[in-house]
Design a protein around this nucleic acid. Sequence first.
DNA 1: AAACTTATCGTAAAAAGTACGCTAACTATA
DNA 2: TATAGTTAGCGTACTTTTTACGATAAGTTT
Lengths: 245, 245
Amino acid sequence: MPIQTNQSVSVDCALFGFDGVSLRVLLIERPAYNNLERMKLPGSMIHQNETLPQAAVRVLESLTGMKIHYLKQLEIFSDPWRVSGDELAWIRQRYQIQTERVVTVGYYALIKLDNRLYEHTSAKGAQWVSIDEIQRLAMDHKQILSVALGMLCREMQQSPIAFELLPRKFTIKELQRLFEAVLGIEIDNRNFRKKMFSSGFLSATGEKQTGVAHKPAEYFTFDKAAYRKAMKAKLKMGFIDNWRY
Amino acid sequence: MPIQTNQSVSVDCALFGFDGVSLRVLLIERPAYNNLERMKLPGSMIHQNETLPQAAVRVLESLTGMKIHYLKQLEIFSDPWRVSGDELAWIRQRYQIQTERVVTVGYYALIKLDNRLYEHTSAKGAQWVSIDEIQRLAMDHKQILSVALGMLCREMQQSPIAFELLPRKFTIKELQRLFEAVLGIEIDNRNFRKKMFSSGFLSATGEKQTGVAHKPAEYFTFDKAAYRKAMKAKLKMGFIDNWRY
DNA sequence: AAACTTATCGTAAAAAGTACGCTAACTATA
DNA sequence: TATAGTTAGCGTACTTTTTACGATAAGTTT
């Protein structure tokens, strides 16, 4: 069996945002080409002299105009036929390269949604689509998105990445709603609150909501330093204390 | 910046085994070439029509002569200069290809060490090296190994992969020693035993050790079906109950 | 037979997680 | 301007899980 030559390596990125109600992912619409699906995840062939994460960051930063603070690799989609037929023709035309096979690396990234971001992305022709409204995507991008979502669920229960999706100041309820949206469950807000506080890295700002039709909630911020200290303490002892077979 | 062409994709694999005392990894020694490091992880360029995991399995099965039951992708090592200079020359000569850049995908795999396996691997010129005896490896293979070890530690606390490293029948103490070796900690054997049993997927064989200088321990096996049933039950409810911030 | 080692069973205390009642503080609306 | 509706935020009792460690059992070595 001959060694594979004439192949390309690309990155495809699922960038997630939370609008207070549902989880959204950034999609771009490519020009019509035969009957190919129009909507796809942002992506690019890798350039010379850049690593894969650099390529992912390049794609996302140019699309959002903002710094990407959280980026994580998913897996590599290496099915020899994942890009073939019209899709392969599209790639060849789009990038002006003679490639026989495209291996892609999936990334997922998190960002705080805000108006400036909405403006920037829509100027670029990209859209924030709620994850439960997505039916089909180009190539195997639906599969990549599924993997990204699974990863997000798992990560969210183990590391403080939720805060990457929320504004700097947030209420406990907002945090709770994010968990509920991503994990698709209901949570008792009294116990949720206790759990969050007991971790010790939410710090109160003293500021409160205004104009809400109920007792205003206090705004909190995520205290990164306290989190790191807590983690270090945990590693010293414990460690074995969180097996989940 | 031009699109990268003329690149190759390879896989490199860290195959782990446990000899009852320490964790070992399979290394191969390549022929001398200038002053390059001799020892490296097993790996290969990918062939046409094979996916990356297929390539990894091909490499490991031909080296061990055994089926690989547990294989998992690590990450992609895509530094543009990770293979350059003499190393790049070596690759070109070894595979007879004109490549400018080699992107590699790390895999880690687990196997049960036994005599048949030792024979087969040593016939192939490969060695099982204890992980704390490894100083340097070719290219960035030391880095790949580090990532693999980190992954193994994390996975071992969350899924029942320990059993991939033990013989079919094992004592609780052997299981405990494996955990201690991989995680580098001491564990109270009475609590360890309770934890293992409470999970409900160790099944007693009725057989006991013979010839040991103490009360003989019973042999157990890992009951995969029970494990899957337990997992399904867990997913139905719980879910939120294992955050670790 | 005594010493040594690990297996295995138990128990009590501490910590973490769960369920849920209650009051506080706002806005909308009647 | 009262009152109904809503979420915030505090507390408490109960259950489950984890941890620390005592005690006995069953072999081999000396």
